[in-house]
């Protein structure tokens, strides 16, 4: 993993998840899994972030918030949908206030399966996202 230009920072937003995936995302940062040793930091500011980690599905009220965070992030950026709710709606797909997966509003690059997604799976997803981020960066450089 020595090839990236900058430490990939993530921003996490909880769509309408049950918290299960959220606390697993946080667990990735803590001593047992400790992704900070690779320079991956959870930031609260979208303008500092490269990777947008979103858990839970979208609904009428949070759709604007999700779009807003995405548009504030500088290019290149990658979206990771963590958990089955962010992928398709999961157990809640038939609920009246659930519109479905995050890909209804944003272009999603990586899907992480699981209910709740395990920290190992999330780390795997982030590593894939870093590869995509580097590819996007190169394409941007070539275009000038």
């Amino acid at each position: 993993m020595s090839y990236f230009k900058k430490s990939p920072w993530i921003i996490h937003y909880d769509g309408s998840s049950c918290n299960g995936c959220d606390i697993e995302v946080l667990a990735c940062l803590t001593p047992m899994y400790d992704v900070e040793r690779f320079g991956i930091v959870n930031t609260g500011n979208p303008k500092h972030a490269d990777i947008f980690v979103i858990t839970g599905s979208v609904n009428e009220q949070n759709i604007e918030v999700v779009k807003n965070i995405y548009h504030q992030m500088p290019n290149p950026k990658v979206v990771v949908a963590v958990g089955i709710c962010a992928t398709s709606g999961g157990v809640f797909r038939e609920c009246y206030n659930v519109m479905g997966g995050v890909d209804k509003v944003l272009p999603v690059d990586v899907y992480v399966p699981g209910c709740a997604a395990r920290p190992e799976a999330i780390i795997d997803g982030i590593v894939k996202a870093i590869g995509i981020l580097e590819k996007k960066r190169k394409e941007m450089d070539e275009k000038g």
């Binding site: 009220q61 609920c95 206030n97």
Partner: peptide, 14 residues
């Protein structure tokens, strides 16, 4: 509030 509402109580119908 309302950013997280899913309406899972209604799922008892299904």
């Amino acid at each position: 509030i309302g950013y997280l509402h899913r309406g899972l109580e209604k799922l008892v119908d299904k």
